[in-house]
């Protein structure tokens, strides 16, 4: 029998799962804002599909978080009753939709990361994570194909679209460094073979992003300074507003069934 994990270890695991869950949720929430407002009906439908996949992933992770947490909480406790400083999503994902170029640039950076990250997660010693990852990787492969195609289309489309998507990838670049940082809760989980060591994924990520930028005739941003803090709960000003919307009904009338 495997010995019981120490309390700090349990906390680390919970934090790691919540980080994964929050990523999916916050991006899903952002994509949901597009529903009904897309540039053309087919893309409205496609983007909603991605939002649905992400909300689905978030639910799997929150359910697993509830299990790990072992305090009898439901999957909804974590998205609806935590504050800004407790959310652990990447800063990138809470950035506003702005326009199609920003939305796709954000999606493309994140999908490229998720693809390499979930591929690694399939080797985790944690069965639950492996099982969620094996479902997520199928979805993410499709998301990555979709966002890559749009980056290429915009980059190699018109002069206007080229400029817009170049600006978007430039502006969002500073939020990508965080993908490859290791928090304390991750170190412990990496040691136990549970978490993915994302610091080792940077080269792969750079290569795959570079290939698409090349095809899109886009210039790879060169900024060396990256914003950080999302994984530790120090966010941009955007997150508070997202949570205000997300949590409004549960906070106004707590303790009820919906």
């Amino acid at each position: 029998m495997v010995g019981r994990m120490s309390t700090s270890s349990e906390n680390s695991k919970l934090n790691y799962i919540l980080h994964l869950a929050d990523n999916s949720l916050i991006l899903g929430q952002r994509l949901g804002e597009w529903c009904g407002h897309g540039p053309v009906l087919e893309q409205d439908i496609a983007l909603t599909n991605i939002a649905l996949d992400l909300i689905g992933q978030a639910r799997y992770f929150y359910q697993y978080a509830a299990l790990t947490d072992n305090r009898g909480k439901s999957e909804d406790h974590y998205p609806y009753f935590r504050g800004e400083r407790e959310f652990k999503n990447f800063l990138l994902l809470e950035q506003p939709n702005m326009d199609w170029a920003y939305t796709m640039a954000r999606q493309f950076y994140y999908d490229s990361y998720c693809f390499v990250m979930y591929t690694e997660m399939l080797k985790s010693k944690d069965e639950q994570l492996v099982s969620i990852a094996s479902k997520a990787i199928k979805e993410v492969s499709y998301h990555l194909k979709y966002s890559s195609e749009w980056v290429i289309r915009m980059g190699d489309g018109t002069e206007e679209s080229h400029e817009k998507v170049q600006n978007a990838v430039n502006d969002l670049w500073e939020y990508c460094g965080e993908f490859f940082e290791t928090t304390q809760y991750e170190s412990e989980m990496i040691e136990q073979g549970i978490a993915v060591d994302a610091s080792k994924l940077k080269e792969k990520w750079l290569r795959s992003v570079g290939e698409i930028f090349n095809e899109a005739t886009l210039i790879m941003p060169e900024g060396k300074w990256f914003q950080t803090g999302g994984k530790e709960g120090v966010h941009t000003e955007n997150l508070g507003y997202i949570l205000t919307d997300l949590q409004y009904i549960q906070k106004t009338m707590p303790g009820l069934s919906w």
């Binding site: 909300i55 639910r59 997202i242 919307d245 009904i249 919906w258």
Partner: peptide, 14 residues
């Protein structure tokens, strides 16, 4: 969509 009271409701509404 952004304000659905549970994640299950949010997914169903989407």
């Amino acid at each position: 969509i952004s304000r659905a009271p549970t994640l299950r409701r949010k997914a169903a509404l989407l």
